[in-house]
């Protein structure tokens, strides 16, 4: 039986200054998968996520989330941007950053209250950052900052999670902690989409994978399509990774 589709992308083309970064992408992300998007630098991985979320306007194509346009489904989607996309010297605390995850459900003008604070503290607890709730975000290590971002996504209590390189610049312990949380999300029936760089860990972490290099190369279960043929198609003949069978 076909799985329910969480995100359907049809004929998506995105261009920066008339140069296509994503070309005619057709992609169906089934509900309940933990999917890696892999591809070389400049393959358009982040762009793909950003155009799903409406942050970048595509020049052609459409995206639906559970059958409706994203703008109608914002509350079902959580997003973890690249850690480097924000200024960590911004004057705020870990708890406050996590609270930002509740802004979407609050809408304009309304302020977070007790319910939101409780949810934020629970999310901090889940990522093991509760003791740091009042810490200045600039005083956190790279791994801790990434956990805060994850907590911020958890507090959105979404159906689909998009994460842009959540393992970038984190230590081994944090990487384990993050992947365990992602696996727990999948177990709870959520859909998780991760831009991922480390090809070695794909079979261990993910059950679904999309190969991307401006065009979509392949998408499907890791056990069926994560092979040398697709890796060469995506990265070229000289890719530097060998897969352990």
């Amino acid at each position: 039986m076909e799985k329910e589709v969480a995100v359907a992308i049809d004929d998506l083309t995105v261009a920066y200054n008339y140069k296509p970064v994503l070309w005619d992408i057709d992609l169906a992300i089934p509900k309940g998968v933990l999917m890696a998007i892999v591809g070389p630098n400049g393959a358009g991985k982040s762009t793909l996520i950003k155009s799903i979320l409406g942050i970048i306007k595509p020049i052609a194509g459409s995206v639906t989330v559970f059958g409706k346009p994203y703008t109608k489904q914002r509350k079902k989607v959580a997003y973890v941007p690249q850690k480097g996309s924000v200024d960590w010297d911004f004057p705020t605390t870990a708890l406050d950053v996590v609270l930002m995850g509740t802004y979407g459900s609050l809408g304009w003008i309304k302020r977070p209250g007790k319910t939101q604070k409780k949810a934020a503290l629970e999310a901090l607890e889940k990522v093991g950052m509760l003791p740091f709730k009042n810490r200045q975000i600039s005083q956190l290590s790279g791994g801790q900052q990434q956990r805060i971002f994850l907590a911020r996504a958890l507090v959105q209590n979404a159906e689909i999670y998009f994460m842009d390189e959540p393992f970038q610049g984190v230590d081994a312990t944090t990487e384990k902690a993050i992947i365990n949380i992602l696996k727990a999300l999948r177990k709870a029936g959520k859909t998780v989409v991760v831009v991922h760089h480390d090809l070695q860990t794909v079979p261990e972490y993910f059950d679904w994978v999309t190969f991307l290099n401006v065009k979509k190369i392949a998408t499907g279960p890791v056990k069926d399509i994560f092979n040398n043929e697709n890796l060469i198609k995506t990265y070229g003949i000289n890719y530097q990774v060998s897969i352990q069978e």
């Binding site: 979320l53 914002r74 924000v86 200024d87 979407g104």
Partner: peptide, 10 residues
Amino acid sequence: FDVGLASALG
């Protein structure tokens, strides 16, 4: 702080 999230949240 985070233009990307602001945009994604509407």
